[in-house]
Simulated assay, not measured.
Amino acid sequence: MRRGFLLLSILLLLMASCELYYEEPVQRGTVRIVSIGITYENEPEEVADPEDEKKDKLGDLPGTVYDARELSDALKQQAMRAGWDSEDIKVTLLLQEGEDYSEVTVNDTGYASRANLKRTLEIIQGTATVDDLTIITYSGHGIEETGELLMAHTQTSGTVDISEDSPIVVTPEWLHDLIRPIEGKKLLIVDSCYSGVFVPESSSSLSWLYDKGIDDWYGKYFSDEEYEIPSCMVLTASADSDSYEIKFDDHNHGVFTSALLAALGWNHTTEEIANGVPPAAQNEMLTIDSIYKYIKKNQTYPVRWSLFSIGENVQHPMVTGGAMDMLLFRY
């Protein structure tokens, strides 16, 4: 028993003594923002057999396009507030909205298909430098329990397939393989159900999802591996549970994205960020950790069950673990 208390005391001391690493901002690079929003309103036909889980009709998500558009605007404006020139900020929107599924629609370069996402990230990979910051946001469906993302379909007829081999399914491995070779800092923001599966393990941390316990975390913390400054951070709406939308004025937003927009100082009426540093900034610095803390504190839905929240929707965001933080903007 005493040994257990001793180990716990040592662990708490080490955690308290670790200082976060704030990477210096480089305002001479390019900020690239890729925002994806999919409403799933344009499926060609109803599923014939409602019990066919692999080809079940996808529910509409009216808030996702608002998520994508407003997040990209808020992030662009914050980059300009932090010192970037507008010509050094590149925004790409990949959207699916409305009921049209014609060949012209699904083949448009701005359509939120998996092929267009792949093409966009490969173009960035070919042009990005070590001074650049790439931010990718996704608002859409995540497959129940397994978390894979569902891009917009490219069918002009027939029932949309969401089986494992479907061309609209995006796995964590597929997406991270495209993001990893991009030079510079990267941030992936995912607002979908079961999105915690996109938070990767690192040399300094484990993902808590599914089968990781305190023994695994303890072993990782005291391993001989050196801490690395992650070039890609991941921020997700939920761990291994559903995520939700809420009504905001005259349109919807994801619960997580609504809190993220508030963290960035977004005004839904003026469609501009507020003056001064954003609410989530600490010491005039906007970091992944400061955003995460703000979302957990200010999110509309509770982040954990309590005696007073049983029966309510609970949604707990996730972030890349470890002692390292990433600085986005300094003001």
Score class of each variant (00 low, 15 high):
247 K>H: 09
317 P>V: 06
295 I>G: 00
138 Y>T: 00
44 P>Y: 11
213 G>V: 05
77 Q>F: 05
306 S>L: 06
265 G>S: 10
264 L>A: 03
243 S>K: 02
272 E>C: 08
287 T>C: 11
43 E>R: 10
121 L>D: 02
129 T>N: 07
159 T>S: 05
46 E>F: 07
28 R>Q: 15
268 H>L: 02
59 G>W: 04
114 R>P: 02
193 C>V: 07
249 D>T: 11
227 Y>I: 03
243 S>P: 05
21 Y>L: 13
112 A>E: 06
265 G>A: 11
30 T>F: 03
228 E>P: 01
281 A>C: 11
38 I>C: 09
262 A>H: 08
225 E>N: 09
311 G>S: 10
306 S>M: 07
124 I>Y: 08
200 P>L: 06
249 D>Q: 14
200 P>S: 05
252 N>T: 02
41 E>L: 01
103 E>K: 14
209 L>H: 01
316 H>C: 10
320 T>A: 06
54 K>C: 01
84 W>Y: 15
169 V>A: 05
78 Q>G: 00
276 G>R: 06
99 E>C: 04
38 I>L: 11
118 K>G: 03
126 G>I: 00
316 H>S: 14
55 K>V: 01
262 A>S: 15
134 T>C: 08
225 E>C: 00
18 C>K: 10
69 R>I: 13
77 Q>K: 15
129 T>C: 05
